[in-house]
Amino acid sequence: MSALLEVSGVSKAFGGVRAVDDASLSVEEGSITALIGPNGAGKSTLFNCISGFLRPDRGQIALAGRRIERLPPHAIVHAGLARTFQTARALTRLTVLDNVRLAAPSHPGECLRNLIARRGAVRRREAQVTEEAFRLLRLVRLEDYADALAGTLSGGQRKLLDLARILIASPRLILLDEPMAGVNPALREELLAHVLDLRATRGITFLVIEHDLAFVMRASDHVFVMAEGRVLTEGTPEEVRRDERVIDAYLGTDV
């Protein structure tokens, strides 16, 4: 296995706050890698740097060997990386179906010129995209809500929608920021099953921020622990669980 994502020496400060401080990590292709750490450790900030929403002050980020730290978010998506946010970001006054269709890649109908010049191609692609969107909504069991406005979904359902809509772009690497937070136990099991299944069937790699240690222990192959902007340690879930520094910095008590 080789590293699909390579983060080396990334720092990001907000004024005096060094949110991410010389952090390095690598995510193996085909792995489910967890990123854990106490509140304010800089995990979400690191995600924002990787996905192009923040420009790191220092350091390099490579996706499949290609440097991406200076690319805008949409270009990073095109390079094969997709992400969700810590709070689900449903487009509330669009239908659930449109939330997914909007995420489809290379749609000629999203370019003004093609709406006149390539109407046939636009219609064909839209039909394809609609079919694919329904398939994904069935996968996360939201197909009954396809025509509802996304703002009517519950918090947990929105997390499923977030997942369904990034899948339409067939990403190689998915960054999930606390996918389990605010989701009920039954849905959690479902989400976990989706993640495992997507890796098994499509070979998608995951980097997951998660406070739910049950998820981390069950799903992940490798864990990175952040505290105060730095990567404190890494290892298998088993190793990390026994690491004294982790227990001090994060877990407080034995897990």
């Binding site: 970001r89 487009l91 669009l94």
Partner: peptide, 19 residues
Amino acid sequence: PWGRVLRGIREDEDAVSSL
């Protein structure tokens, strides 16, 4: 589809650029 992207941007520009 063009209008759909615009409506998405109206709702949440970061979400749309993350897509």
